[in-house]
Design a protein around this nucleic acid. Structure first.
Length: 105
DNA sequence: TGCTTGACTTTAC
DNA sequence: AGTAAAGCCAAGC
């Protein structure tokens, strides 16, 4: 079977340990897609969190903020809740301290 | 078959 | 510090 580009991305995201977060650029790099961070974001946009066991909530942008899609409409709150339950600490501005909670394989 | 959009990143001013 | 532009690939119409 042929591993699609997204399949590799899902696998990489699924490798993120609990209580850690990764940036799109990092996921792209680990997936052999360095420089194509948009593909990672787009991949997570197309999947269904209900049918997929991909911890999409552990993926944030380079600023440590939670990216949201117009379709999710407020899903950032859910994502933040999930991360907080895993032990991820948020800054007063609602940002994540990437230097501390960033996934380092 | 071709153009537009989209959960991004990085560099530069 | 915040704003602007370029680069990349895939799916949708």
């Amino acid at each position: 079977m042929t591993e699609s580009t997204y399949d590799r991305i899902y696998k990489t995201v699924h490798q993120i340990p609990e209580g850690k977060v990764a940036t799109y650029g990092q996921i792209a790099e680990l997936t052999n897609l360095a420089g194509k961070a948009r593909l990672v974001g787009y991949a997570l946009y197309r999947i269904d969190p209900q049918t997929s066991d991909v911890p999409w909530h552990r993926v944030v942008n380079a600023k440590g903020e939670i990216s949201q899609s117009p379709f999710r409409n407020g899903g950032d709150y859910l994502q933040r809740s999930l991360l907080e339950q895993e032990g991820v600490q948020f800054s007063p501005q609602g940002k994540i301290n990437l230097r501390a909670d960033r996934w380092q394989p």
